[in-house]
Amino acid sequence: MSDTTPLARGPVAVATPVVRDGWELDARVATGPLTLSDESPLAKVHVRAPFDGASRAALGVGLGRTARGDLGTGDVLVVGSGPGEWLVLGAPGTASALRASIEQRLARTGEFTTVLDLTHGRALLRLTGPTAARVLAGVCAIDFSDAVTPDGAALRTSLAAVVTDVVRDDRSGVPSYLLHVERSSGQYLADALLDAGRGSGLEMTGFRGLG
């Protein structure tokens, strides 16, 4: 019955498939400094709550910023993705526990809140490299200079005509952007970024994870 074990697939076509933890991942490893990876297997939990109430305090971050922390399931990245909206990213496989944990914490506030597991509903790409902002400048009107969009900034805007949550989440001092869109737009956005980055040497690389 091994062929009936559910296999999860990300939104972006995989060149060299390997299966890990029930996910089909790409085994490619880029050699250059500018990379794009499909991080869709990360747990993605969506939170709605009053934008300025006790829930915000419980989540530890407000609109337009990110915070790393632990909500009881290990390391997570909490993103203030919209007015009264949060996106919480965690390790693959932790979504149910993360959703339950957040729901429990927010229940104590007495506020009207909604916590949804959207792990399978959204695509999550990561664009990393010293010239990542230059790639984004080909598809987006936002100013990605350090002064305007520093590490830890989060915003929603249009990338190549697709509404995208853009989260600046640098890796070891190297500029890095998490790009969060409707799952069905994931392949298109990856293609558009690879096109915009073709003069900069942008390469696909395998799943990297949150750490």
Partner: peptide, 10 residues
């Protein structure tokens, strides 16, 4: 560049 989004089902 042509930026005309297309969407695909799984």
């Amino acid at each position: 560049r042509p930026h005309e989004p297309v969407r695909h089902s799984p």
